[in-house]
Design a protein around this nucleic acid. Structure first.
Length: 807
DNA sequence: GTAGGGTTAG
């Protein structure tokens, strides 16, 4: 009994609401009277007397066994597995039949691990598993994605000579498909002497499970060539294959077959078709099918709701939910909730999302790995990483998708450091990162811009099986560009065998942020020569490039061309770039009217562009107007305060400088501590302004002193005080001579090989003084110096900078 | 007396 009780606890803990909801009473202890059953053949219940003859003793035992067997069946049929096991323990169970019943009971109730445990217990109690045990156990191994268990069971059944059984083999094919080992599935299939319809269907669904839609469709054709007539199972699996890869044409062909074979009234076939059409973007077809379904169960409704959500029609999704409740009197289930959460994001309806969370909680849908993951996404999308973090932390079961969701939540909310830490934690878990993980984490490396770490992730990716995935390679291209190694970025781009539009957009943007506008434009021509059609993002990259490199006319050409030649309506990013172009050309009036005439509501980024232009052209009035708009949208925009304050300082309006500073204090926005980084092979060296903490500080200051003296008077003439207090008492401290970027450049010069460029990364924009000084340093030292600030890379060479002195 | 393949979800 001890064994049985330990099992009870296990079952109880691992039961998900979906498995046993509504099937169990709240009383956790099995009731005695539920197992002392009435003998159906007798008019009275049995009474156990003291003295009995041998014959009557046997008949009593037989009757008892019969009663227990009936009780066992009844508990299994009603899903009461705890009670079933309780009865099982009271029975003689030397026969595989009883064991098979219980194992099947577990599997049917979704308790697959328990099914596997019971199979092991069966072996340890000396009862041999038979050809009816294995299909269930194998199915359980597939469902729990347990390769080791599956392989062991396969070995065992092979030894027992059960590998020639068609049912056993079909279950093996299906299991290997679910485990992602399609080659094993195929081997089992090929070695089968007799293949029936189920074997074919198992292989078809195996291909679907591993995402190989085309092979599953080929399989459907192959079986027909061999005169094997497909059934509804074959249809459902191949329809799913079409959904997965949005193969609308094949989907329609299978729809025709469905009609020809007369499966069109099968609700599961109908649901699969509905789902296929919505996944292929044809909500209209999905709706038509939906109307034709006479008996709509919750799965049909969920598929329709999911279709609306997937096609970004959140209002219709909610309307569909109401119809489901009113017309068919159906209550939403956990899948309905999961489906609806993204539509809350689409609608910007945070409170509705929270209500769904509350409803799910009240209904006992939680814990549920998929729902919790969807909630993590929801909170992440609404800028609530703390709430997402809480859900993630409390989760009892986490899948790779859960981890991916939390990582991207951090990234979406600018928490790159946390994302990277979580990724490192994932690496030590028994989960293997997939393309989504990699595609989301690599940009985080780009943001922290540490080449050393970026190279580590590159090393990891090189060993990883999906390393030729274009998403991954695109993200690596951008990572290297952002970390300052444009050449490496280009090398990786050149090695991508199937460059998609994103690959081109990425490389164009890479050249853009390095200020190489002409190269960006050339790459665009090359992209067109390769018959790759530009999209919305292509023009963001191109216009960014034109604005950074000051290619005003070319920029305007692209702006008109995207509308006329490519029918792409400009979005807010494009307008931002055009404003940068106008600002750069000093056309402030036109910039102002451009904002007014824009068909989209101006964002802080748009006003920020006007602010930068006003600052660069010393138009305080316009800068104030822009700042006012920015503060209305983002009251704590630190960059805006700093820029405005610098502008006042340049105009020597010290009272205004103080006013801005106190405003900053009031809003609680702290000035970002500017720092500059230089990476050597084994270390990241971080400098702040006037830093003396570095080991080689004396040397750095000594060299910098020499360089500054060499630069002569120019630096002091350019000395424009930033953020200087009214009293000027910290005049020395605010001097740009020892700004972090100069210290970093200096350290770079003495710590890298002559001939190699010096790479410095900076978290704020470079100031005019330092820009001028580094130009001269590059000339005097004959070294190439690359400084990546918070927006662009400045390539200093021979006294010039790639930005053309405008940033 | 009990087996194998199937619909909606992150």
């Amino acid at each position: 009994m001890a064994v049985a009780l330990s099992h009870y606890n296990y079952y109880h803990n691992s039961v998900t609401p979906r498995n046993l909801s509504g099937k169990r009473s709240s009383d956790s202890k099995p009731k005695e009277d539920s197992i002392v059953v009435v003998n159906p053949g007798a008019s009275k219940p049995f009474r156990f007397g003291r003295k009995k003859s041998k014959t009557s003793q046997r008949s009593v035992e037989q009757a008892r066994d019969l009663s227990l067997m009936q009780a066992l069946r009844s508990h299994i049929d009603s899903g009461h597995m705890r009670d079933a096991v309780y009865v099982f323990e009271k029975m003689k169970h030397s026969d595989a039949y009883v064991w098979n019943l219980v194992i099947r009971g577990f599997a049917e109730n979704g308790l697959f691990w328990e099914a596997i445990d019971f199979y092991h217990r069966m072996g340890s109690e000396g009862v041999r598993a038979d050809k009816l045990t294995y299909p269930i156990v194998i199915k359980a191994c597939g469902a729990t994605v347990s390769f080791d268990e599956g392989e062991k069971a396969h070995g065992k059944l092979f030894k027992l000579g059960l590998d020639s059984d068609v049912c056993v083999c079909s279950s093996l094919i299906s299991m290997y498909g679910k485990l992602g080992c399609i080659e094993y599935a195929l081997k089992v299939f090929e070695e089968m002497t007799v293949k029936d319809l189920v074997s074919w269907n198992s292989l078809i669904s195996g291909y679907v499970a591993v995402g190989d839609s085309r092979s599953s469709l080929m399989c459907l054709l192959d079986m027909q060539v061999l005169r094997m007539k497909p059934d509804r199972f074959s249809m459902i699996s191949t329809i799913n294959a079409c959904s997965m890869e949005r193969l609308l044409r094949s989907g329609k062909e299978i729809h025709c077959q469905v009609l020809k074979c007369g499966f069109e009234l099968d609700v599961m076939v109908q649901t699969s078709l509905l789902d296929m059409y919505s996944k292929c973007g044809r909500v209209d077809y999905a709706e038509r099918l939906f109307c034709e379904i006479s008996l709509r169960n919750i799965v049909v409704w969920n598929a329709m709701i999911g279709g609306y959500v997937l096609n970004s029609r959140p209002l219709e999704a909610f309307a569909c939910l109401r119809r489901m409740q009113e017309a068919d009197n159906l209550n939403p289930d956990v899948i309905t909730m999961i489906n609806l959460l993204p539509s809350c994001t689409q609608l910007g309806a945070f409170l509705d999302g929270k209500s769904i969370h509350g409803y799910a909680s009240r209904k006992g849908f939680l814990p549920h790995v998929v729902l919790e993951t969807a909630l993590t996404d929801l909170y992440g999308a609404f800028g609530e990483p703390k709430l997402a973090e809480y859900i993630f932390g409390e989760m009892t079961e986490k899948s790779l998708i859960t981890w991916n969701s939390m990582i991207s939540t951090y990234i979406q909310n600018g928490r790159n450091k946390e994302a990277l830490e979580l990724f490192q934690e994932l690496l030590i878990k028994p989960l293997i990162p997939d393309a989504t993980t990699i595609a989301s984490i690599v940009p985080a490396y780009s943001e922290v811009a540490l080449l050393r770490e970026g190279k580590q992730i590159h090393g990891y990716i090189s060993k990883w099986e999906h390393n030729q995935n274009s998403y991954t390679l695109n993200s690596l291209v951008y990572m290297y560009a952002k970390c300052g190694e444009l050449d490496t970025a280009r090398e990786i781009f050149d090695r991508i065998s199937d460059r998609d539009v994103s690959s081109w957009n990425t490389i164009i943007m890479s050249y853009a942020i390095h200020g190489f506008g002409r190269e960006s434009v050339e790459l665009f021509s090359e992209m067109r020569d390769n018959d790759v059609k530009p999209n919305y993002s292509t023009f963001v990259s191109l216009l960014t490039s034109c604005s950074i490199s000051g290619m005003v006319d070319v920029g305007w050409e692209f702006y008109y061309s995207m509308k006329i030649d490519y029918e792409i309506d400009p979005g807010i990013e494009h307008y931002g770039c055009i404003l940068d172009l106008l600002g750069r050309a000093g056309d402030l009036d036109r910039a102002k009217s451009f904002i007014k005439e824009m068909p989209l509501a101006p964002t802080a980024r748009i006003w920020g562009s006007l602010l930068t232009a006003s600052r660069n052209h010393r138009n305080i009035e316009l800068a104030e107007l822009a700042a006012e708009h920015i503060f209305r949208l983002e009251h704590d925009n630190t960059g805006c305060y700093v820029l405005l304050s610098n502008l006042y300082a340049e105009a020597e309006r010290w009272a205004d400088v103080e006013r801005v500073k106190s405003l900053m204090k009031q809003t609680g926005s702290d000035k970002t501590v500017g720092c500059s980084l230089v990476e050597t092979e084994c270390k990241v060296h971080r400098f702040v302004n006037h830093d003396r903490s570095h080991d080689q500080s004396n040397m750095i200051y000594h060299v910098l002193g020499i360089l500054l003296r060499k630069l002569g008077e120019e630096t002091s003439v350019h000395r424009i005080t930033k953020f200087r207090p009214l009293e000027l008492k910290n005049k020395r401290a605010s001097s740009p001579d020892y700004h972090s970027v100069r210290l970093a450049v200096c350290f770079g010069l003495i710590s890298t090989k002559v001939g190699n460029p010096v790479l410095v990364r900076k978290n704020t924009r470079i100031c005019k003084d330092c820009h001028g000084a580094i130009k001269k340093i590059s000339e005097r030292t004959k070294r190439e110096i690359v400084v990546g600030d918070s927006k662009v890379f400045h390539h200093f060479r021979d006294g010039n900078c790639s930005c053309g002195d405008y940033w």
